[in-house]
Simulated assay, not measured.
Amino acid sequence: MPPYQDKRTVNGKTVKRWRYKFQLRGKQYSGSTAKLNNTRAAAAALERVRLATLDDRISAGKMPTLVEYADVFLANQKRSAGLLTHEGQTSHLHKHVLPTHGHLHLDAFYRRHAEELKQRWLDDGAARSTINTRLDTLQRMLSYAAETDVIRASPKLKRLSTDHKVKSIKYLTDAQVAELVDSAPPQWASMLLVAARTGMRIGELRALKWAHLNFDTRVIAIVETNPGRPDMPETSPKSGKQRTVPMTDEVHAALLELKRTSAWIWPALEWHGRGRDGGRSQSGCQHGIRTAAKAAGLKNVTWHVLRHTYASALVMRGVSLMVVQELLGHANAKQTAVYAHLAPGFAHHAAVAALDLPLLTNPSGLHLSSTAESAPPERPVIAPGADK
């Protein structure tokens, strides 16, 4: 239960205390915290008490359940991982793992239990990639328990194969991109154009500053990303890879026309006369692209669709997947391989045409002398005693 406030009269004065009550392994724990100002501080104090109590039980050799140990694991992840990662892991465990298997002790969770979870998620219609993400979170928690000597070893959970199905990619044609930009509100037109012609992620667009642009060389440096939430700072791009992308003529012209009113190229918009420093919010960006897509008569258009549009346009114009991978900032080639089916048959036609040519006996083009000319001279045979 959440912490609650207790008022008592001591020596004629009213004293307010935050009290807590929780249960671990069938045992009730209760007490009071120091004087605090608000409910959030009291909840944080309660969480510290719960974790300390659980740590004491673990130190005493009492094996925790998955529900109990999830608090320890998530508290560690909150310190070491990003806020979005922590929120995702919390959702995976509390919504999809603990309701059915949280009562099991850590040392009693086996691979067959993971197989039960996978089958349940498949029956519920979850995507295979989503199931693998949940398994990764569960594997991290079990591995952390093994690293901290709570359990002897962590069971190896088997992920689902995702190579059986070719992922369909939605992208826009050049005419649809032009219609989307023309139909967009003025404050969103340039941002949509840059997204479709550079392949930048929405977080990278929100974090883009004037200092990252070089109009002389027509290059955009992508050095950070903005989650779009005021409680989260800007961080390095996804997979930690900084990169540069070239400006097309229309991107170059669109950026030159913008007014520099902030360090950010697309600063946060004012709302009822109020504004905040920084890039645009996540909800504002979603509203902007939905408004533009509706005006253009397009359905299911997202910022990531514009990223697919950029990659698809490059591949269909004969750009190699290796170059596309570098421009998109993909961590590995598998992520870029989803665009391979869009590549034209230029390389195949070139290979067939080359096979129709006569075989070159001297591909290097160097002058080779005949065998007789190039053979070393034979040494004369001298009979024994002939030199006397």
Rank of each mutant, 00 (worst) to 15 (best):
P230S: 12
A114R: 04
L157Y: 05
V194Q: 13
H86A: 13
P380Y: 01
T133R: 09
A70C: 01
D6R: 15
T244S: 12
A41G: 01
M232G: 02
I151E: 05
T85I: 03
R274K: 14
P3T: 00
K167F: 03
H349D: 14
N11M: 15
R112W: 11
M200R: 04
R290P: 00
Y4H: 15
I382L: 13
D216I: 15
F73P: 03
R57K: 01
W303E: 01
L298Q: 05
G125H: 04
W121L: 15
G318Q: 12
V10T: 04
N226G: 02
L314G: 07
K95H: 09
K156N: 10
P267L: 04
E326K: 14
A207M: 04
P155Q: 03
K62S: 14
Q286I: 10
G329R: 01
R152C: 10
F109D: 03
P230N: 11
A311W: 09
N300Y: 04
R260F: 03
E257I: 03
H86T: 14
T39Y: 09
E47G: 00
S91M: 09
D107N: 11
E234M: 10
L83W: 15
Y339S: 08
R40H: 08
K95V: 03
D107Y: 00
K209T: 14
G284H: 07
L104D: 01
Q335A: 15
T248K: 06
V315S: 12
E234T: 05
I202V: 14
A75W: 13
S369A: 12
L84N: 10
A52H: 04
T137F: 03
L66R: 04
R307Y: 03
A221H: 15
Y20T: 02
L180K: 02
G288F: 09
S364C: 07
R152A: 08
L104S: 00
K167L: 11
A153I: 10
Q89D: 12
L360Y: 04
H308F: 03
P363Q: 05
K165R: 13
L298A: 03
D163V: 12
L84Q: 13
S369N: 05
D249L: 05
K95C: 05
Q28I: 14
S374A: 12
Q325T: 11
I220M: 13
Y144N: 08
A195H: 08
V67D: 11
L106P: 06
A253H: 11
G125T: 06
L269M: 11
V181D: 08
R379N: 09
R17A: 09
L36A: 01
L66W: 01
R206W: 05
I202P: 00
G297Q: 02
K95R: 11
M232A: 09
A292M: 00
L355T: 13
E373V: 03
G102P: 00
